[in-house]
Nucleic acid binder design. Structure first.
Lengths: 152, 152
DNA sequence: ATTCTCTTCATACTAAAGTATGATTTCCAG
DNA sequence: CTGGAAATCATACTTTAGTATGAAGAGAAT
């Protein structure tokens, strides 16, 4: 609002200066000889320019901010482990580790290497997992685990 | 640019109308009696308003577009098959059938029974799939296929 | 007509997965 | 301190998965 007042002051001054200028021109160069239409046209154009200038001064600060909401697909960033299900099914820590690696598509041997245990150990954990998840194969285990929110 | 031309036309018309109006006023109501300053002031104010109007018409198009990225969790509720990938990888119809059943956690034998083909046929399709998907195991194949949008 | 892909299937393997059982150690709770 | 769960591993075995190779019919494309 402070700037508004400033704009009005500037506008008033500009008007005064132009009026003076026109008066000076009027008496010094006999512009009165020109037809009224041309005279008015000049003033009109001048003040249209002034108007545009004023408008830009005012409106520049009132730029319409169009907030365009662009939907961004987020790949499952919100996974939260369903610990209740884990407990309910009685899945142990190590079994869960194996399940995780399984869901990454690793073979039993690769899981064994990653977890620093023997192949047989992984097989045992896997077998126990299948019983607890009530499935027969690892592909089903991964499917079921995802359904139950045990893995992302 | 089309809109610019339209604005100019409107402006020209407005100027003409106002000039005419002033001429009519001039001869009918003896406005000439008013001092030149007041007369000019009125014209100035009028055309300042016109200028502002023109300016708003022009400037309104300078809207600041703030692109706000809204994260949208897509729970893959509506799956749309990525046929381009299927073609790119050269996966045949039958191979895709096997892939689908595979992702359901079925064994090769179960898939064979479901598709009314022999176990060996399923194995062949599976093997070819692994080559095309560049994976080694069915678990990885399912994973990869999901990433590529081949299966839900 | 013949080349090519898809589909089917077989045989013969190798590799991996999965089951069953038992043993050992560690660690926690009753 | 002791019974039980958890974790580890082994041996032995069965079942599935996966590879390699070849073959043959069907249909589309050239």
């Amino acid at each position: 609002m402070l700037k508004m007042r400033k704009t009005i002051v500037i506008y008033g001054l500009a008007l005064a200066v132009l009026t003076l200028l026109l008066n000076v021109l009027e008496y010094k160069f006999f512009i009165r000889d020109l037809s009224m239409e041309v005279y008015m046209g000049l003033i009109a154009i001048m003040f249209t320019i002034v108007g545009i200038w004023v408008a830009t001064k005012i409106i520049r600060r009132k730029t319409e901010t169009v907030i365009k909401e662009v939907p961004v697909l987020v790949q499952q960033s919100h996974f939260e482990l369903n610990e209740k299900e884990l407990q309910r099914l009685g899945i142990s820590n190590r079994e869960y580790d194996v399940l995780e690696q399984m869901s990454q598509g690793l073979s039993n041997q690769e899981i064994a290497d990653k977890l620093y245990v023997s192949l047989n150990t992984v097989k045992t954990h896997a077998s126990n997992l299948y019983i607890k998840l009530d499935v027969k194969r690892r592909t089903q285990a991964v499917q079921r685990a995802k359904e139950l929110g045990l893995i992302p």
